[in-house]
């Protein structure tokens, strides 16, 4: 099926079997291998990308469902020469070991900060009608869809906290 998806600002037309997930379309068809396949069942978050600015698991979505959508992957967030502040914070805070979950962590963190800016609640939000108090408990809960097998969690929290301050 013909599907046109704008990936990192560039319109890309694909002709794919309906079974192809958004993740496989990005990795196998567009050769954007930054988004990672961890579990392929929506449990680990390594495949997290932003679709129209919202974070989702690209493994649990079909490419054909995204005709006309704007998709941002780690390749569209920054480059080695021009790092995004979130990428720089992950380096500075040593927020990874093997690095496999990192593209998903970074996409998820950016989506998460947008959700906090919109005042979306989480299960850590005590007062649902007040402005979110962006505590570390809130941050951890909001990143619970991204697993890090190397368990760099304290540094991931520090990196996101640092980048959030810079981006605010």
């Amino acid at each position: 099926m013909k599907t046109t998806i704008t990936v990192n600002g560039e319109a890309r037309t694909l002709d794919v079997d309906p079974r192809v997930t958004l993740l496989d379309a990005l990795r196998e068809h567009l050769r954007l291998t930054g988004s990672k396949k961890g579990c392929d069942h929506g449990q680990c978050g390594a495949c997290t990308v932003l679709v129209n600015g919202v974070r989702i698991n690209s493994c649990l979505s079909l490419a054909v469902m995204h005709d006309g959508d704007q998709v941002t992957t780690i390749e569209g967030i920054g480059t080695a020469e021009t790092l995004h502040p979130m990428q720089r914070a992950f380096l500075t805070e040593d927020a990874f070991q093997c690095g496999y979950c990192t593209p998903g962590q970074i996409c998820s963190a950016l989506g998460m900060l947008a959700e906090v800016a919109e005042n979306w609640p989480s299960q850590e939000t005590a007062d649902l009608t007040a402005k979110i108090a962006f505590t570390d408990d809130e941050l951890r809960e909001r990143m619970s869809g991204n697993i890090c097998r190397c368990s760099a969690y304290p540094q991931i929290v520090a990196a996101i906290r640092s980048a959030a301050g810079e981006l605010a």
Binding site: G42, G45, T48, V54, R55, I56, N57, L60, S61, S108, G111, M112, E115, P121, S122, Q123, T125, L128, R142, S144, G145
Partner: peptide, 15 residues
């Protein structure tokens, strides 16, 4: 709201 945010992950709830 409490029930919804108790389920899944943010990425899943977004979709």
């Amino acid at each position: 709201t409490q029930a919804i945010v108790a389920g899944g992950s943010p990425q899943l709830r977004n979709k």
